[in-house]
């Protein structure tokens, strides 16, 4: 698999999760293990640009895919706009959920840009959906923050959605 742009050849047992490969085999500990059962979102990474829970993914099923973790979202030493926005808006306190929040938000913004609806989208047939606060909260509901930094998280995503779409595209 390719992880943050670098090809990695690994031999692991079929029962090893993608999360454990990233953390234990590749030393990429930015991706966190929260619940290890798909309930908290701390392990969110991008696979070919789509967000998934790496704790419920068997690594062997992702051979040959392009994985992006929090360590891979900055470009050329420049923090990702979402990373900067999270700092600016107090989008975290303890920081444990933050890497999952940011990877999830990158995937979510790409889904929104592709016209995907959500559970709070009233007009499903419409091609474009305005990314309101309610839309962001619904689309990010798979990422829990026990510190309750949700207001800062939503503001950070709104900031980036409003102004940095081109930078987001480059980060995929």
């Amino acid at each position: 698999m390719r992880v943050n742009g670098a090809v990695q050849s690994l031999e692991v047992e079929p029962r090893v999760s993608l999360l454990d490969v990233l953390r234990e085999h590749l030393g990429l500990t930015g991706t966190k293990k929260g619940c290890n059962q798909g309930a908290c979102g701390a392990c969110t990474v991008l696979v070919d640009g789509e967000r998934i829970n790496s704790c419920l993914a068997l690594a062997v099923q992702y051979a040959g895919r392009e994985i992006t973790t929090i360590e891979g979202v900055a470009t050329g030493g420049q923090a990702h706009p979402l990373q900067e926005a999270f700092i600016r808006n107090d989008g975290f306190q303890c920081g444990y959920c933050t890497s999952g929040q940011i990877c999830s938000a990158i995937g979510m913004l790409a889904e929104h840009r592709a016209g995907a609806p959500s559970a709070v989208t009233e007009h499903l047939a419409a091609e474009a959906v305005e990314l309101s606060g309610a839309e962001i909260r619904e689309r990010m509901s798979g990422n829990l923050c026990r510190c309750g930094a949700y207001n800062g998280i939503v503001e950070s995503i709104q900031d980036v959605a409003a102004g940095h779409a081109d930078v987001l595209a480059a980060a995929r």
Binding site: G41, A119, A125, S141, G142
Partner: peptide
């Protein structure tokens, strides 16, 4: 367009990450 109840039901379940998997 034709089966909005199905799109809504799927979107009401799980999370964005889980629905992608």
């Amino acid at each position: 367009s034709r089966y909005p109840v199905l799109a809504q039901a799927i979107l009401a379940g799980a999370s964005g990450q889980l629905r992608n998997m």
